[in-house]
Computed example of a mutant assay.
Amino acid sequence: MAQNENLAELSTAGVAVWLDDLSRDRIRRGNLQSLVDEYSVVGVTTNPTIFAAAISGSDSYDDQVHAMAVRKVSVEEALRTITAADVRDACDLLSPVAKRTGRDGRVSLEVSPGVARDTDATAAEAAHLWWLVDRPNLFIKIPATQEGLAAITTSIAKGISVNVTLIFSPERYRAVMDAYLSGLEQRVRNGGSLSGIESVASFFVSRVDTEIDKRLDKAGADPSLRGKAALANAQLAYQAYEEIVSSDRWRTLKAHGANPQRPLWASTGVKNPEYPDTLYVSGLIAPDTVNTMPEKTLKAYADHGGLGTPIQKTYDKAAQVMDAVSAAGVDLDDVFKVIEDEGIQKFVDSWDELTESVRSELEDKS
């Protein structure tokens, strides 16, 4: 079937189009397949918020939940069984994409947000989920907390493909790239193959504007700075990516068959209705990147989106924007700390909601 022209053009520019949503209904009713066939979708990301909405809003899970209720399985086991089943089915649906592209066709499943500050627990759960889903085109999502960095290295060294999530600053992004390369180097030293190991680094966008705009308003700063920081911040992150993939360290790993850890633009749905609804897509155009979008943003870009200035031509302006934000009195280090903490807490809250939703379903079906 013919692909939407705007999204096909985005893909041709080097931006892989992924969907930031998943449910059993999407898979069973053919919606996900139609997005692959008509909207250039080549990957899927999930999180606890997405699964909480999917399970509580559909009866497609009833039979599976009833079977687990009869068996009296724990809430934790039921939760992982349900989410792993959806991710496994999505991996199978996207398997032809994975075979065709060699790097896309991926579906992400997140470790419990409750272990985000525990290195060993994160690494252990990542290994368990990798085993549980058992598909080569799976990504395990690991938060980019300080504690998560070592878990990323451990997981990559074991041959587990990782989607590193909740990255907000170029500085933390550099640490994430270092953790990825360290894992690859460790695997090489241990005699392992780098074939098939993929990784993306999910750099969050819209939440940066939400927090910085609020602080700019409070400081009485120049209104023209509003809505500029998130794109500038992400553009400078891509500059850091280019520096890493041109380094001798990377070239050595590439010679061993390593794949680059692509930047993934996350949180690309616009939260401020005053801003263009495709702002965080059109403004982040660069080769070897991924943009994971809510369906609303995906359809908006399909309808009226267009390519903006390539990121490589924005570095000077992006640096000027961030300098101006700092000069206006915004403490960027504090911004990034606050939104990382909030990001983790939001996923913890969603995880709790998901757990309670499954618990309720088990009780109803018992």
Rank of each mutant, 00 (worst) to 15 (best):
R249N: 04
N291F: 04
R26E: 10
S11R: 13
V42R: 07
K141V: 07
V290M: 03
T309V: 10
V205S: 05
I244M: 12
E171I: 06
A230R: 02
A54V: 05
D62Y: 12
R249C: 06
L129F: 14
T12A: 04
L129D: 06
T278E: 10
K313G: 08
A286T: 07
A240V: 11
H256R: 10
R226M: 09
A255G: 12
D341V: 14
K271T: 14
Q186F: 05
G305H: 05
T119W: 11
A157S: 15
G308C: 09
E363Y: 15
A237F: 02
L264C: 08
G343M: 08
Q33T: 11
Y61R: 12
E295Q: 13
A121Y: 08
A67I: 02
I152C: 00
D341I: 12
S155W: 00
N233P: 04
L332H: 04
A150W: 03
E5R: 09
P223V: 10
A229V: 03
D37I: 12
R80F: 15
Q345S: 14
Q3M: 01
L166S: 00
D222W: 05
R174M: 11
S350I: 00
A67G: 05
S247F: 05
E361H: 14
S95N: 04
E353A: 14
S199A: 15
I212S: 01
L94D: 03
R187W: 11
D303K: 14
K271N: 07
T12F: 09
A328L: 11
P263F: 08
S326Q: 10
V41R: 01
S58A: 15
Y238M: 00
A121L: 11
G105R: 00
E274Q: 13
S350N: 09
L284M: 11
N233S: 07
S350P: 02
S366I: 12
R28Y: 11
S357K: 02
H304Q: 14
K72E: 12
N4M: 05
G269A: 12
R106W: 08
A266W: 01
T210G: 02
I344W: 01
E361R: 14
A78R: 05
A219L: 13
D21K: 09
M322V: 09
V111P: 02
R88T: 12
L194E: 01
G14E: 07
H66N: 14
N6Q: 15
M177F: 09
P96I: 06
A121M: 03
L253P: 06
A221R: 03
Q261H: 13
D288P: 09
S202A: 10
S182C: 09
Q261A: 08
L149N: 00
W265K: 02
G159T: 10
T46D: 08
R71Q: 15
L279H: 06
V188P: 05
P96W: 13
K299E: 04
Y61S: 11
S60R: 14
D277I: 10
S108Y: 02
V188H: 13
E185L: 09
E361T: 10
L307V: 10
E353N: 10
P294Q: 05
N259V: 04
F139A: 07
G43E: 09
V97W: 06
V188T: 05
W130K: 06
S282G: 12
